Simulated assay, not measured.
Amino acid sequence: MSTYWGDGTTARDYHRALPVVATTLPLLRARSAGAAVWRRFGRPGWHTLTDALDNPDGDQLLASQRAAADQARREQQAAEREAARPACTRCAAKFTDERWAEKDRTVWDDGLCGSCRQADADQRERREAEEAAEQQRAVEAAAAEAERGCIWWRRS
């Protein structure tokens, strides 16, 4: 048996047990079955049958139990969603919500997270800059060679 306290609620959860009520035949004969002649085990005093069987704050208890079950269900769904979250194929970092939505929208996806994509883009830019610089050096070297060759032709 659990006792619940808080928010003005004091209720007992009898774990689906039946309440036990009792009376005596002389009390039933003297008064009637509708009078306060019933004792509920675990409660003080005499009660009418409906009061003895009633759990007056059971609705609040039920509401709090439903709220706790809803919260547990939401937490379970969030945990399942996180477990299903895709990860980067390179660094295994979990995708952000934005990256996950982008992955779902596109037909073809590289499977990389934002930081790995940025690292690839930076590496590609460096490589292109190095190739452009190499081409520029080759052009300058060819121009210098052509100018040297032109000088010799002029002298002869």
Rank of each mutant, 00 (worst) to 15 (best):
82 E>C: 02
95 F>H: 04
73 R>E: 09
122 D>M: 01
89 T>F: 14
122 D>W: 06
76 Q>G: 09
74 R>Y: 06
78 A>H: 02
116 C>E: 13
115 S>F: 05
110 D>Q: 12
104 D>C: 12
107 V>Y: 10
125 E>R: 03
103 K>D: 08
116 C>S: 06
98 E>F: 08
78 A>D: 03
127 R>L: 03
110 D>H: 14
126 R>M: 05
97 D>C: 01
126 R>T: 05
85 R>A: 06
109 D>Y: 04
97 D>E: 07
119 A>T: 12
111 G>Q: 01
127 R>E: 04
79 A>R: 03
76 Q>P: 05
84 A>S: 06
110 D>M: 10
83 A>R: 07
94 K>S: 12
82 E>D: 08
127 R>G: 02
114 G>R: 00
109 D>S: 01
81 R>D: 12
83 A>G: 13
96 T>V: 10
90 R>H: 08
119 A>K: 11
111 G>Y: 10
73 R>V: 01
96 T>R: 07
114 G>W: 00
76 Q>I: 04
103 K>M: 11
102 E>D: 13
99 R>A: 15
101 A>Y: 12
93 A>E: 15
88 C>D: 15
87 A>T: 12
80 E>L: 09
82 E>Y: 11
79 A>Y: 09
116 C>R: 13
75 E>P: 02
120 D>Y: 11
100 W>K: 08
103 K>E: 07
75 E>H: 04
80 E>T: 02
73 R>F: 11
76 Q>N: 08
112 L>E: 10
115 S>E: 06
